[in-house]
Simulated scan of single mutants.
Amino acid sequence: MERGVRQRHSSSFGTAAAAYAEHRPDYAPTAARWVLGSAPGPRVLDLGAGTGKLTGTLLGLGVDVVAVEPDPAMLAELRRALPAVRSFSGSAESIPLPDASVDAVVAGNAMHWFDMAVAGPEIARVLASGGVLAGLWNVMDDRIGWVAALERVSGRAAIGPRDTLSSWRTATVGMHLPGSSAVARFGSPEQREFAHSQRRTADTLVATIATRAGILVMPEREREATLSRIREFLSSRPETSRGEFSLPMLTGVLRTRRL
């Protein structure tokens, strides 16, 4: 994705901050536990923290979390939901923390928006020696027939290149993580997936999909037509048309260590 398009997509979430907070899922605790299992200490930075979905999961594990988020509306939702968490306005490219101040840097559904040429040295700066860097993504399990059909009906703008298991695997295989630099060196990335799910109805799944960047930047008429098509599909399927159901998901993780 070229830089201008990436910027437009990454800055779109603030327009739907309240809906994002209401409808986006949290992260599998097993995934967060695996990420932090090799961290040298309990100090964790949630970078690009959004409305605090991953922050909340981390708090549940009893670690010391600080959140950094660039969008004012998203940050306001995080502070409303998690008022006890230390949180700052900032970005991956300009982190408002001291050198070597955290043992892990994590990003939930956010790392693909970072400009790693700039963010890599910044992340290395705030990480203690031996610290962990990890991206976590919640993805729908398209090994399930109706989920794969939903992806086809929705189109790539609505369900993007990291929103299903197969597309996430493809996208992260070649994903650029920090390598050698004048600041620090990172090891080879490890990739794992952890079972997860979210209770949804047809209406709330449509509301969740409506918070994706590809939908948020659509012209209004196209957006309404896309969401209507998705709603009709969900209403036609026995798995999703009879009230509440479990959306089959995984939390995918890409983890590396500062050497």
Rank of each mutant, 00 (worst) to 15 (best):
F13Q: 02
G131N: 08
L58F: 03
E224V: 12
A134K: 06
S154P: 01
V85T: 11
G214Q: 02
R258L: 15
V105Q: 01
E69C: 09
T204P: 01
E232P: 00
I95G: 01
A28M: 00
G160Q: 12
I159W: 03
H196C: 02
I144S: 11
G108E: 05
G52H: 07
A213K: 04
P25R: 10
S94P: 00
V132L: 05
R43I: 07
L127M: 08
G214L: 11
L234C: 08
S129A: 15
I230N: 01
A213C: 08
D26V: 11
V147P: 02
V139E: 04
R80K: 13
A81N: 11
V102E: 04
D163A: 15
R257E: 12
S101E: 08
G90W: 09
W137C: 08
T30C: 04
R212I: 06
P83T: 06
T15V: 05
S10V: 11
T30D: 15
R185F: 01
E151Q: 14
L177Q: 08
A107W: 02
G108A: 04
G243L: 06
R152N: 10
A67Q: 11
S38Q: 14
P121R: 06
V217G: 03
R43A: 11
R156A: 15
P238A: 03
P178C: 04
L150G: 02
I144L: 10
D203M: 03
A225N: 04
E190F: 05
D142C: 09
G243H: 06
R258C: 14
L150T: 10
R257G: 03
A128P: 02
S87E: 06
Q7M: 13
E232D: 14
S11E: 13
E77S: 02
W34R: 12
S181P: 00
S89T: 15
V132E: 03
S246T: 12
T51A: 04
F13I: 08
L254S: 13
A148P: 00
D46G: 05
I215W: 07
P219S: 07
T30E: 15
K53L: 11
V85A: 10
P40S: 05
V132H: 00
L82F: 14
H23W: 12
D163W: 02
R33T: 14
D99Y: 04
D141H: 03
Q191W: 11
R229M: 01
E239I: 10
L82Q: 13
S94R: 15
Q7H: 10
L36A: 06
F13A: 08
S12E: 08
H196N: 12
R152E: 15
L165W: 07
A100C: 08
G50M: 05
V5T: 14
G155N: 07
F114K: 07
G48S: 02
P161M: 11
L47V: 09
M1Y: 06
G214F: 09
L133A: 08
Q191Y: 13
L177N: 05
M1A: 14
D71N: 13
D203C: 09
G174C: 07
P98N: 09
G187Y: 05
V105S: 00
F186R: 11
E239A: 14
S11A: 15
R33H: 12
L61N: 06
R231E: 12
G50F: 04
V63K: 07
M116T: 09
G131Q: 10
P248E: 06
R143F: 02
G160E: 11
F88P: 00
A182T: 09
H23S: 10
L127F: 05
V66P: 07
E151K: 12
